[in-house]
Amino acid sequence: MLSNRIVVYRAERGWTQQDLADRTDVSRQTIAFVEKNKYNPSLILAFKIANAFGVPLTDVFDYKEE
């Protein structure tokens, strides 16, 4: 299972889902689905999200075997 801390990082920066979407070149809906774990991002998108926050990938995303 892939989990993420996108909501936490967005809140710390005062960003909306649209703000993050604009920084990562995806739709707001994509960010919403990733945040809610309804969509696993591609590796490229995961790196874009982490880079937007200026943190390592593993600070935003965590994978655990079910």
Rank of each mutant, 00 (worst) to 15 (best):
M1E: 09
M1R: 09
M1K: 10
M1L: 08
L2N: 03
L2P: 08
S3Q: 09
N4P: 13
N4S: 13
N4L: 15
R5K: 15
R5V: 00
R5T: 06
R5G: 00
I6Y: 02
I6W: 00
I6F: 02
V7M: 02
V7T: 10
V7R: 11
V8I: 09
V8C: 00
V8Q: 12
Y9V: 04
Y9Q: 10
Y9P: 00
R10F: 12
R10I: 14
A11P: 01
A11R: 14
A11W: 01
E12C: 07
E12K: 14
R13Y: 07
R13I: 12
G14K: 11
G14N: 10
G14M: 12
W15V: 14
W15C: 12
T16E: 08
T16A: 09
T16D: 06
Q17T: 11
Q17L: 15
Q18L: 14
D19T: 14
L20F: 03
L20M: 03
L20G: 06
L20N: 06
A21P: 05
A21I: 11
D22P: 02
R23Y: 00
T24V: 15
D25V: 09
D25W: 10
V26W: 07
V26G: 07
S27C: 12
S27D: 11
R28Y: 05
R28G: 05
Q29C: 05
I31D: 01
I31Y: 02
I31P: 01
I31N: 02
I31V: 15
A32S: 13
A32D: 00
A32R: 10
A32T: 08
A32C: 05
A32K: 07
V34K: 03
V34H: 01
E35F: 09
K36I: 08
K38D: 04
K38S: 07
Y39F: 13
Y39N: 10
Y39W: 10
N40M: 06
N40H: 06
P41T: 11
P41C: 12
S42K: 08
S42P: 07
S42F: 01
L43V: 14
L43I: 12
L43Q: 05
I44G: 09
I44K: 14
L45V: 05
L45E: 03
L45R: 07
L45Q: 08
A46S: 12
A46Y: 06
A46W: 04
A46K: 04
F47S: 13
F47R: 15
F47K: 15
F47W: 12
K48V: 07
I49W: 04
A50G: 09
A50T: 10
A50N: 07
N51L: 05
N51E: 15
N51P: 03
A52W: 04
F53E: 06
F53Y: 04
F53H: 05
G54V: 04
G54W: 02
V55G: 01
V55R: 06
P56I: 01
P56H: 03
P56F: 05
L57Q: 00
L57K: 01
T58F: 08
T58D: 12
D59P: 00
D59Q: 08
D59L: 01
D59H: 07
V60C: 06
F61M: 04
F61W: 05
F61Q: 02
D62V: 08
D62G: 01
D62E: 08
D62M: 03
D62W: 02
Y63Q: 08
Y63H: 10
K64S: 09
K64G: 02
K64F: 02
E65W: 11
E65N: 10
E66A: 11
E66D: 14
E66L: 09
